[in-house]
Design a protein around this nucleic acid. Sequence first.
DNA 1: CGTGGCTGCCC
DNA 2: ATTCTGC
DNA 3: GCAGAATGGGCAGCCACG
Length: 577
Amino acid sequence: MKFSELADYFEKLEATTKRNEMVALLAELFKNLSPEEVEKVAYLCQERLVPNYEKIEFGMSEKLVAKSLAKALSKDEEEVWTLYKEIGDLGALAQRYIGEGKGELEILDVYNRLMEIATTTGKGSIEKKTDRLAELFSHLSGKEAKYISRIVLGRLRLGIGDPTILDAFSYAYSGDKSLRPVIERAYNLCSDLGLVGFTLFSKGLDALRDFKVQVGKPIRMALAERLPSAEEIISKIGRCSVEPKFDGFRCQIHKDGDNIKIFSRNLEDNTEMFPDLVEGARKQIGAEKAIIEGEALAFNEEAQEFFPFQVTVQRKRKYEIETVMADLPLKLFAFDLLYVDGEDYTPKPYIERREKLKSLILPGDVIMVADSIITEDPKELNLFFENAIGSGLEGIVAKRVDAPYQAGARNFNWIKLKRSYKGELTDTVDLVILGYYVGRGARTKLGIGSLLAGVYDPESDTFKTVAKIGSGLTEEEWIKMKGLLDEIRVDNKPSRVVSILEPDIWVEPKYVVEVRADEITRSPVHTAGKDEGELGYALRFPRVEKFVRIDRKPEDATTVQEILEMYNMQKKVEVKE
DNA sequence: CGTGGCTGCCC
DNA sequence: ATTCTGC
DNA sequence: GCAGAATGGGCAGCCACG
């Protein structure tokens, strides 16, 4: 199939918000493709060229796609950037300025060219990549260029994600969605949407039924939903297992004899980064073959406590692994078992997986299984939660005792309850709006995408940045907000504002919003509490809680001093036996 | 060889 | 990560 | 309730450039 025809399908998909229509359109598309084309189109729909767990990335985002468009259109980069800020979508920009074009390239030709761009590395590669993308644009119509731009940017914005494509595979194969469970299961086990599509349309449904858990191949991870209280958790799922939630990174560990692999939440192969976990898995997983999941955190031997996420995350690296490992050894809190010695454990009830996991993990100092309780009493759950946050943990995860491991799903089989969800327990802060950024995509029509906000520093009578905030307001509120801010818009940074970041629009410090956050972190970019050459402070996961506090003047906002106090109040994680 | 811009991936 | 929105 | 698309802080890696 020609890429132009695919672009026509994309255009139709973009025009509807109805899921059923999308599924029907996609199914029609898949029926018109060869199995190989289905495979490639599946990846393109994921804004990729290979499955998630393969390390081939475009390595180009808005700056470089803008640069390519500048080359293709013989315009200045600044001009393209200015247009982008107005339009909010480089794809739409491409479509507007690139002409009709012949539309003669095959999907597979385009795919191959994208692959060439993605695999260009080394000295001079930025120039080469942008040249090659510009060259590709020269063979495309505006419409095709729109979708190519968006694929490279990772913002296809068609309203189709993996689940929609899985439905569409079913619909194309059988005329309804009845095969989704079989197809989805195959996807969950192999994590390769292209392979699933290729297999279905070349070998048939039975070939997908034959897919099995393979040690060494990542399984799509189950995720947790959220609820704000113990009571709601119990009334939702009743009797449940409750365990602490640690603030590290998710690891899926595959053991096949001495061969260990470690996958991240997004199924990246991170094995090389964690020699200590690999060693721990060899020693402490008491089975020849097994797949376990857990949360890895760096441990402070000296203080006998866990490091905060900001420190733990430094272990995610390619170089100087041994050096950093010496200071930041990892511990793994194992919490689930997916496979052991020939048996797929994912369909088994949680309670059974956990019991087996406990017996599987041998004593040692790297891998452990955290204490958990089973309860149907909200008070007891709450006590466990209070205890957890008292020890400086993020919160708890409650799990349905009888639920299977639902790979790839985010549902109420697992429910997280975090410190920050409980209004009374975490402080919110009152921040002064200092400016705003124009949005991208769906936010463009609102004319505003996020806020730059700060705290007050009475010592110098200045406002210092502490967060950008892009969630918490409804579309209606965003529009209202923009209206308010445009009235106090100024051309340059007000003299009382201290900021490294440059919003698209500066405003007079006037409006105060109530902002919730999970934590305060040290920040290289925010100026609150920042001394010369030192780090400032910032909010982790900031979101607007209350639209505008008309009762507050900017000088009544939270102060730098208060932020510092809140930072110092944050408890360190104590060691647990 | 150091720095800064940009990107991808953790949360 | 959190949050909002259309179905 | 699901699925998707907006948005956040901040780390390391890669590349360009002085």
